[in-house]
Amino acid sequence: MREILSLIFMIVGGFFNLFGCIGLVRLPDIYNRLQASTKCVTLGTCLTLLGMMINGPLNSSLKGFLCAIFILITAPTAAHALSRASIKAGINLWEKSVVNKLKEEEK
């Protein structure tokens, strides 16, 4: 029972990772890519870790818990730092973008 449950969690996590990486290739702009890939890969990694934690020795379960918390804290922070740096470096948004409040403020 526990094995089946953990396999289900890991497969769902793998699907989410795959969606994130497809988004990394298909979307047109660095900001959209960053958004899709960060969301999907973070949740996919946490689900894979959860599947390992359900059916594993206690040592590795606790380390996996710490690893999940670490990734939940740091992955959005890295995305924020990278997007802010791209804005500062002058990389423009996609040409079909609707609104850019940040550029309107600077004028």
């Binding site: 996590g13 990486c21 890939s37 960060t38 890969v41 996919g44 390992m52 995305a79 740096a85």
Partner: peptide, 24 residues
């Protein structure tokens, strides 16, 4: 250059997935 860094960042998290499966 930003796009490349996004790729490297995501690749780092994929490696964490590999380590998890080997632990499993």
């Amino acid at each position: 250059p930003g796009d490349r860094v996004v790729g490297i960042d995501i690749l780092g998290i994929i490696v964490v997935n590999f380590c998890t499966i080997i632990t499993y």
